[in-house]
Structure formats: C-alpha cells, structure tokens
Design a protein around this nucleic acid. Structure first.
Lengths: 341, 341
DNA sequence: ATTTAGCACTCGCTCTTTAAGAGTGCTAAC
DNA sequence: GTTAGCACTCTTAAAGAGCGAGTGCTAAAT
C-alpha cells in the first residue's frame, strides 16, 4: 500500500510530466508551495515509487517519468473523480455548425471538434448500418443483367449494391419477390434478413414464386453483407505536434496505423457502454505502445451503437480529455435521439 | 539555345540527382563511361547551365541540383519520348485482385497499386455522380415529416439524401410528382435536372399537380446538389520516406494538405484529357512547392470523367512514373468501359 | 579556340573536447 | 524520520579541428 505522501508525490509528478513532457526531479517537486519536504526526502520516496514500478528513469541520473503502470494507477486512483469534474464544468456547449441534419455530419463534426479541442487524433466509429431496421427495399434494373438493390433503413440510411440478375428470372417474378420482402420483412434488422428468410419465408416463396430453386443463390448475393461501419477522422496529423513523436521513425508507424482500416476498427470498437481507457501496450499493437486510447460510447434509445475515440500519447491530459469525451459523447447521444423524433 | 553537350550534361545530372538525391559534382559526371570530358570542362558547362537558370547550388562550393526550370526542361525536352517508351513496355499488367466489380473498388485499388509501385502518394478523383444520367428516382417516407430521396444513375450509382416533407403535400401528389419525374427526366444528367424542370416541366406540373406553388421550394430542396466527386487515396504516408521530407516541419504542411479535401480536389482536378505535369510552384500552393503532381485522365465512352494522380517530390522518377500512369489510366478506362457492356 | 591540369579556397560534416547543468544516491548529522 | 552535503553520472550545447567534396580561376596543352 502506498502512503498518503507517496500518493501525493506520484500525482504531482505525473501532473507535472503531463504538462511539461520532461523528466521530473526531486527539486522541481519540492519547490511546489504545497510540498513541505526537502528534495532529499522526496528523492527517497521517488526511489521507492520506482522500485514499485510506478516510475522510470530515462538514464541513471535523470529525473523520473511515469511508467505505464504509473499512468494506469494515476487514471484509476489519482484522477479527481469524474462526477465532481462534470458538475464543475456543467454542460459544455460544443460548436456544431448550424443544426446538424444528418448523422454523418454529426459524426464528422464531432471528430473534428474533439481533435481541435485536444490536439490529439480522434475517430468516430459510426453505427453499423446493418443493425438498422429495414424500412423499404427495391431492385432497379440498370441493364438486362445488372440491377441495383437498395435498402432504406428506419434511420433514413440507404444501403445499395449492384447485383447480377440471373438469366432465368422474369421481371414479374422479381417484382413479386420485392413485394414479399417488403411486406414481410419491414422492421427486421438488415443483418438478420437472410436468416429470417430462410427460417420463415421459404414456404411463402414456394407458394408465390415459380423458380424458387434458382432464387437461392440470387438471394444470397442480394443479402450478403460485409461490415459497414464508417470511420470519421479528426486531426489525423496532430500526432506530429506531440513532442514524443518529434522523430519521423516514431510517427511513421503511427500514421500508418491510422490509415489501416482494419486495425483502427479493432482499436476503436468497444462493446462496453461508457468510457474505456487503454494505456500503451494495453492496446496490444506495437505501433500503439506509446499511445493511449480513450473510447466513449454513444447510444440510441439506450443501446450502444458506436464510439467516439481519442488517440494521443500515453502522456495525455487525461483529466481534461475524459470530461470532454464524456460530455461530447452524451451530446452526440442527445442529438442522435432528437433525430428520431 | 543549348548545345548538344549541354543538353547531354543536363540530362545526366538530373538523372543522377533523381537517383541519388545528392548534389551532383563535375567529377561524378566525368566518371561516367559515356563522358569524355574532364571535370574542368564540365565545370564550365555547369556554370553556364546555372547562369541559364537550369541548375542551382545548395551552397557556394556544393555540387549542382536541378532548379524548377531545370525539371520543367527535363520533362519537356529531355525525357525519352513517351510513344517509344510505351511500345517498349507493351501493355503492363496490373494486379487487380480478382475482377473488380464496382467502380469504387477499381478506383481504390488503382490508387493503392500506383502508390505501391512508385512509393509516392496517389489519388484517384472519382467521376462526378452528378454528371451521370438519371435512371430512376424514388422518394421513400421515413416518418411523417422526413423522407429519403433516391436517385439511381445509368451507371448504377446511387445518390440519396434526406428531405423534409412539406406539411401540405399529400402522398398521392408525391407519387404523381415522382412518376412525372421518372417519365420525363430519365436520361437527363442529375446536375441538369433542376434547370430542365424549370424550362420544360412547369406546364406539366401545373396541369397535374394541385399545389404547384408550394412545390417549388420542395423541388429545390430535392435537387440542390453539392459536389460529389469522391477521392481515393493510396500511400498517404509515403511522403515520409522521401529524403527531402525527412524533416517533420517539412512534411507536416504536406500531410495537412493531403487531408484537406477542398485543396486536394482542386489540385487533382483537370479538365484536360491525357497527362498533365505540374512541377513545384506550378501547383500554386505553398505546401506543394517542393512537389510535383502528375494527373492522368481516364475516360468513359471517350469522355473525360476523372483523374488518377501521383504526388511526389519535384525530384520524381518522371520517366518511370509517366509511363506507369499512362498505362494505368488506360487500363482503368478499359475496365470502366467493360462495365457498361 | 577548346580543353585540361593545377591550385587555392569554401562549405558542410563529423568527431572531439570542454564545460555547464540537472539530477541521483549515499552518508552522516540533525 | 528528515535533511544537508557531496561525489558521481549523464545529457546537452558550444567550440574547434580536420577531412572531403566541390568550386572558380589561371595558365598551359592540344
């Protein structure tokens, strides 16, 4: 267990390091008004904190910097509790340009606002369109062989894809098919359409459609979804202004990481409601080992549908950033839910 | 007028600089097998070429590097003529993963291929969907006030937007409107829909629609387009591996530029068919002053519909890159036109 | 009239050296 | 338990030396 004094010193040191990005020595700490001990005493405490793994040295006679464990402890135990902070700030107002009309604009602007406010990189993971419910679908022929299938969701989102029409199918049959789908499957989530058809509609199809056999392949083509979350970025190049990444060889992997959709999706996805903080190697990717990632989820009708995230150096201004992210995600949730009224 | 020897020396020097990215001195040039003159002679020529503005020195006693004017001359007069090069290479085969089905995939892959092959940054400017012709449109109500308008083009592209329904409009009227539009405006380019309506359809509307007065605003809302070209990137971070941008303060503006949609659109747009090369300040933007941009247009049914571009340092491997870009843009044109059969 | 050898001179780089400064750990005294 | 004092370590910046690549100019050679 850490003593009160150790906790205090640890917090002061990390605060200072976050602010100045330079190893902190005993003298610096002792100079603070609220510190009554001499540098020597503090040196002893620092040595202990280092033994415990909360601090590190960059070289034998340098000041200390927080270790990953140090940051983790700081975030978990030394941050002024969120609820307090929140009430202090009140509801922050974010500067959305005019009233945003479409969800995409909201996400895009949120990412931009967040990165502007923090000077870190931010990413919004949009909702998976496939989780939305079918409002209406349609198949529009482009040529004799190719058609466009369109799915409109209850949220007003439009999914579309080109499909190849089987030679055998007749226009009237196609129309029938579309009608059946619209009648029976309105309100079903896109992702579930295919299984629902197989479970419940084969009988109906057999009854109304001539060539049900060949339809199978066509339906599969029609309803084979690939993942469809969209990513919205803000401040992609902000990393370059972080002192710890002043070195090209250090930023390169980072920027490459940001450009790799798969990795980013994984990094930013989170099934949990609320706020998640991952520090350094907790992100489980080499390129992110000196970064922290904070994910905040936004919801619709109480259900988690996406996240807004901030990526910065492990030395992040956690306090500021957490309350920002917290209120912005709430604001997003509010606006989103206003849409559906 | 430059003498033969000057031309030769200029070309050798620029070739060498492009290859090694280091100021080239008289000794280096004289060591080449096909050079019979002594360093001293070459020094004299170099001094002349410098006076003429084709070369520069980084400091008083350094070797020479090409000036912007030098590159321009090199590209215009010293490059082995394209037609020759082409026949040498024959039709290069590009490695598109399986047969690309949709135009978007083609653009995306083209950009990736090009940046992989060159180690520069590439951008494809997609066709403006608004130049495509209306195949079919539809309005699908989401709630009592909001609807989604969908426009399918002859190329199978889908444009959609949310619109606010006027209180006054009746569902049957809406249906009539959509029918009229589909009957009368199929084949018209999206961008022209609005003017066509005003010129030709006001009579029809007056005849068939009850509340033609209020319809005006609604139509404007429905048909107010904003630019819709899409950009596809490849190798966004490749700039970081160019020796001339080894410096963070040099790359930062560049990367920022790449992230700014407006600027990129302008940079990469070109109305000309064929290949355009812009060197350094010819790009008319501070951030691009040390870059060259090569735009190649791809066409559909003989009409220029978009460009594929390469952005690299002014010291680019022009020869390689030009023939690459040339054949890739042709390949794109081919594949695109295959789509429409 | 070209071309070339020779030479003095200029920069930019790299390597050392030096000195200053910040910080530590340890010991001994308070 | 706390602190003053001190030797020691390591980083950083500045200054200087030496090298190498390159130039421009002059005078001799072709």
């Amino acid at each position: 267990m850490l003593t009160e004094r150790q906790l205090f010193i640890l917090r002061v040191l990390i605060d200072d390091y976050i602010k100045h990005v330079e190893p902190v020595g005993s003298r610096t700490i002792s100079k603070r008004e609220d510190i009554t001990y001499s540098p020597a005493t503090i040196r002893n405490e620092l040595a202990d904190l280092e033994d415990l793994g909360f601090l590190e040295k960059t070289h034998t006679s340098s000041g200390r910097i927080p270790s990953e464990k140090g940051y983790r402890f700081y975030v978990d135990h030394l941050l002024p509790s969120l609820s307090m902070k929140e009430s202090e700030i009140g509801h922050s107002e974010f500067l959305f340009t005019e009233k945003v009309q479409e969800a995409e604009a909201l996400f895009d602007q949120s990412a931009k606002i967040l990165s502007d406010l923090t000077n870190y990189t931010s990413v919004v993971l949009g909702p998976n369109a496939l989780d939305m419910k079918l409002k209406h679908m349609q198949i529009i022929p482009i040529s004799s062989q190719v058609a466009v299938a369109i799915f409109v969701t209850n949220t007003g989102h439009v999914e579309n894809r080109q499909i190849v029409l089987p030679d055998t199918i007749e226009p009237s049959e196609l129309e029938k098919l579309v009608n059946i789908l619209n009648e029976r499957l309105a309100g079903v989530r896109l992702i579930e359409l295919n299984t629902r058809i197989q479970k419940e509609l084969s009988a109906v199809f057999k009854k109304h459609l001539k060539d049900y056999q060949n339809m199978g392949v066509f339906l599969d083509q029609l309803l084979l979804w690939s993942k469809k979350e969209k990513l919205f970025y803000g401040g992609k190049t902000n990393m370059l202004s972080q002192p710890e990444f002043r070195d090209l060889d250090k930023v390169r992997p980072l920027l490459d990481f940001l450009e790799t959709r798969d990795l980013m999706e994984k990094l930013v996805s989170s099934t949990e409601k609320g706020l998640t903080i991952r520090i350094g190697t907790e992100n489980e990717h080499e390129a992110m080992k000196n970064c922290s990632v904070i994910n905040a989820s936004y919801t619709m009708h109480g259900k988690h549908i996406g996240t807004i995230s901030l990526i910065g150096p492990t030395r992040m201004e956690y306090q500021k950033v957490i309350s920002l992210l917290d209120s912005l995600s709430k604001e997003m949730t509010n606006i989103l839910n206003d849409f559906s009224n």
